[in-house]
Design a protein around this nucleic acid. Sequence first.
DNA 1: TTAAGTGCAAAAGCTTTGCGGGTAG
DNA 2: CTACCCGCAAAGCTTTTGCACTTAA
Lengths: 161, 161
Amino acid sequence: MSTAIKCMPAMSEAMKKQCEEEFRRLCREKGVPYTTQRRAVLHAVLELGNHPTAEEVCSSAIVRNAGVSRATVYRALESLARLGAVIKVGHGGSAIRYDGRIELHHHLVCLRCNAITDIASAGLDSTPVPDTSEFGFFVKDFRVQLSGLCRRCRTDNPKLH
Amino acid sequence: MSTAIKCMPAMSEAMKKQCEEEFRRLCREKGVPYTTQRRAVLHAVLELGNHPTAEEVCSSAIVRNAGVSRATVYRALESLARLGAVIKVGHGGSAIRYDGRIELHHHLVCLRCNAITDIASAGLDSTPVPDTSEFGFFVKDFRVQLSGLCRRCRTDNPKLH
DNA sequence: TTAAGTGCAAAAGCTTTGCGGGTAG
DNA sequence: CTACCCGCAAAGCTTTTGCACTTAA
C-alpha cells in the first residue's frame, strides 16, 4: 500500500534560473517592484537550498555582498512568499523556514531536530484536493507533511520520548 | 475529482477526557513524570481549542490558576509534543501553535492571516503513506496542509499579492 | 532515594516597525 | 511624478537557559 518516493537532488542552475525568471514574471503580473534586493534574497534562498531561515539568508555571502539589510531580508522574504516565489515551511522550530522549490513536492519533518527533507512522490502528488468552497477557502497549494524521526535522531539517541 | 470535507466541531468533554487519559498512559509507557503542571498545560490546550500559541496557553485561566510559570509552559508543551499528546502545527506565523487533537486530520492554512482550520476528509485520510525506509526515516504521523486564502482575507482585501 | 521537573529572572533569538531618504514603474 | 521600497536602529515578541529548590516514581 506504500508508494515510492525519491529524494530530490539539489536544484540545477537551469532550475534556479527558471525560478528567477518566474519571479520576474510574477512581479510584472502583480505590479510588484522588481528590486535588486529582492533578487538577491531570492538568489540566496535558491543557493542555500536547504530551507534556510531568515537569519541564514541574512548571513549568506550573496546577501552580504549585495549590502542588503536585515529588515529588508525579512520584508523581501515576506513579499516573495506572498507572490508565490518562495514557500514558507511550517515545522516545529522557532524560526520560519523558506523553500525556493515551488514545484509540487512534500516534506519529511523530524520531530526531534526539525530537519526538513524534500521528497518527490507521484502517489502523494495525486492526492485528491478536496472541495473547500463551502468554507469560502481558496486553495493555492497543498503539501503532505510526514512527521517522524530522521535516521540521525534514531541512531544518536535510541531512547526517545 | 474533489472529495468532501467536513468542518470539525469543538471537542466534546468526553474526547478531552480521553486525551487526558491518553496522556497519562503515554507517561506511564515512556516513564515520563505525570506532573500537575503538565496536566494543567494539556488541559489548557484542550480547552482553548483553536491551536493556541505558547503565550496563549500561559495566559489561560487554567494555567494561571494552577500557578504554572512561563518557562514550565514552554517546557511542558515540548514534552507533550515529544510524547505525542499534542501536535506542533507549522504555518507561516512567528509563534509555534499547538493542537490537542491527535486523531488523524488535516489543516487549511491561510497565507495571509495564518489562521488554521481543522478539517476531516476521508479522501485525505486514505493518502497512501509512502515507504521512507530508504531514508532511515520513521514516519509517526502525516497531515495534509492546504494553503490558500480564507474567506475573511478574500473579502477584506480582494487585491492581494 | 534520585532522576527529573519547576520557578525565577535574565539572556538569547527572531521578527516587526517608524522614519527619512531613495528608486522602480 | 508617485507609490512603494530601503537602511538604520530600536522596540517587541517568542523561546531558551542556569541555578537552587521541589517532586513523582
